[in-house]
Write a protein that binds this DNA or RNA. Sequence first.
DNA 1: CTTATTGTCAAGCGTTTACTTAAGTATTTT
DNA 2: AAAATACTTAAGTAAACGCTTGACAATAAG
Lengths: 109, 109
Amino acid sequence: MLNSSLDRTFAALADPTRRAMVERLVQGPATVSELARPLPMSLPAAMLHLKVLEDSGLVTSEKNGRVRTCRIDPARLSLAERWVSERRQMWEARLDRLGAFLDETEETP
Amino acid sequence: MLNSSLDRTFAALADPTRRAMVERLVQGPATVSELARPLPMSLPAAMLHLKVLEDSGLVTSEKNGRVRTCRIDPARLSLAERWVSERRQMWEARLDRLGAFLDETEETP
DNA sequence: CTTATTGTCAAGCGTTTACTTAAGTATTTT
DNA sequence: AAAATACTTAAGTAAACGCTTGACAATAAG
């Protein structure tokens, strides 16, 4: 399905814990522990959130030795941004058409 | 909480049914039935989705007589758009700083 | 070799989500 | 007034989420 990646991306961003992780990762790569440390939950819980972010494609990671380094994928951020932006633009385009129609209609009152 | 509106907005957009409703509403206002008709589910189910959209603030509605008319609130679309956009920009800013640093470091090789 | 660090897997539990069908209310239309 | 329309509420169910604790790697450091 074409949209299921949008599903997962928006769902990933719907949680404050996961947005906090994104917020951290836009400053640069981080390990699993670094991401989990500030969070008010157990490490396994944090890893589940991380898994949601990875499944959405917003975050990628690679393991070297015993440490896994995570980084954000800005392309996925753009994907979500673009969907919203395009819909807002459609809405604006409709308003423009409506305005033009009204201008035409009320010529020489 | 300041962020719970972002929570609800992203959560609302995470579902294909609700995105389809948004997609419809950017073309202009619609009634509950008009929104529900194309969907492969019962009317009450569609109304639950609509409620999620309203709770998020993405959609508003008013009832005249027996028909409820729904319209989108583009400001809420912008809210989501802006959050994503700002984070993507933070990520880009970091890359810029990194580039500048590397340029400085490798002067006169 | 022993120990600490870093991450992972699994089982369990309570809450929330996404529907369903059935019944009911308010407003038009005939 | 009777019937159709448009929406709303309620009750119930199955699946998904978010978290916990506990046990268990694998790697690095002393």
